[in-house]
Design a protein around this nucleic acid. Sequence first.
DNA 1: GCCCAGGGGGCTC
DNA 2: GAGCCCCATGGG
Length: 225
Amino acid sequence: MTVNNAEQIKTRLMEIYKKMFEHFGPRGWWPGDTDFEICVGAILTQSVSWKNVMKAINSLKASGLLDVSRMYSCSNETLEKHIIPTMYYRMKAKKLKAFAGNIVEKYNGNLRQMLSRPLEELREELLSIYGIGPETADSIILYAAGKPVFVVDAYTRRIFSRLGIFREDVAYDEMQRYFMRHLPHDVQLFNEFHALIAGTGNKYCGNKKPKCSRCPVLQECGFTR
DNA sequence: GCCCAGGGGGCTC
DNA sequence: GAGCCCCATGGG
């Protein structure tokens, strides 16, 4: 790839970012009072809308379970009751306990200590925990640890393939490399960009009845179909 | 009633 | 390593 080409890609990505930002404004992501709440939200939001995640988070908070050691020591059944709205609740209870267990056993319950590890080591560790795949790991790294990694998701795939930038079947790592190769590794930029993509996707780019053609941002960005 | 969603694990070949 | 099923609620 020539330098010139890379510059053009960067310019194009930043144009899309700016149009999204002008349209939606700052998204204030990730919502959450503590690092642990952000991590819990990242696990619970797998395949489910944020509205249902908030119900579960509030329920956990109200019962004092939004705490590493209490979450780890409570029964699966107790945990399940609070997260029913987030679908796959039995699986997700296991995932939450695996995450809390990792912090208790390796860091004596100190989440910040784990999050302070170098980016690559942290990513590898997160991926080794049951229930944490690439997207969840990257969300935790960016939004809880505050380290520069670009989070991609189904909306990123949909939006950027509809803009003619990716193939429809592009892999997670390939999308991520694309953004990280062409954009400055800036936590605030990565934070806002992913949040804007999620906002745009949530409003206009559902799979069932895509409304991309009605999205002002995608129209301006050269939406093709 | 039916379809499907911002993901990940586990299995098969 | 791609392809397929499983998980199992809630909203359109």
